[in-house]
């Protein structure tokens, strides 16, 4: 995504201090402030600015889709002509069972796909049904597609910002 402003050193400290989540205490921003050496109000102001700037997308309860029974998480991929990809991407990104929809470079011949969507469902069958529906709408705009199911999570951390 373009246009996201650079963050300064202190913003970065706040990101580092919160990447594993806010402490579940009555005054979580006080705890963060203590860690980074700021006043609590300054932490709140900076986090609000990061949210306004889009560096933080949202603050809230981050669910674990697997634990909620969304076991069928499939990474659906398509090869879409460059001139149609914006329209197709927006259409797919609007679906309520899609959590991410990204344009990425192709890596031919190994990887011909440029449009990626994380499609969720209670099981694999439901994910495949949903991908089929998307395929029907895309029609000839998709030259090739695939769905990659994950078999194991080998590593998952909220966000690791190397220092």
């Amino acid at each position: 995504m373009n246009g996201i402003p650079a963050i300064d050193h202190m913003d970065r400290q706040i990101v580092l201090a919160t990447q594993e989540g806010l402490p579940l205490t009555a005054r979580p921003y006080h705890a963060v402030a203590k860690r980074v050496g700021l006043e609590p109000q300054e932490v709140i102001v900076r986090m609000r600015r990061l949210l306004d700037q889009g560096v933080i997308r949202r603050i809230g309860v981050i669910p674990n889709h697997y634990a909620l029974g969304y076991l069928g998480n499939g990474m659906a991929v398509w090869d879409v002509a460059d001139e149609s990809v914006l329209e197709m991407g927006r259409m797919i990104g609007d679906l309520d069972y899609v959590s991410h929809c990204y344009l990425r470079p192709r890596f031919p011949p190994e990887w011909p796909y440029n449009l990626f969507a994380m499609v969720h469902g209670h099981d694999r069958g439901q994910v495949l049904e949903r991908v089929d529906k998307i395929n029907a709408v895309m029609d000839e705009d998709a030259r090739a597609h695939d769905v990659l199911f994950s078999t194991r999570i080998l590593k998952k951390t909220g966000l690791r910002l190397p220092t």
Binding site: M1, I4, V15, G21, G54, I56, N64, A67
Partner: peptide, 25 residues
């Protein structure tokens, strides 16, 4: 706070906090 601790301990939520934009940080 107790409910969020419970959800966190049982793995239903991964955390309470910020989701950062890819590329933003």
């Amino acid at each position: 706070i107790g409910a969020l601790e419970g959800l966190s301990e049982s793995g239903i939520i991964s955390r309470v906090g910020a989701a950062f934009a890819p590329g933003g940080i």
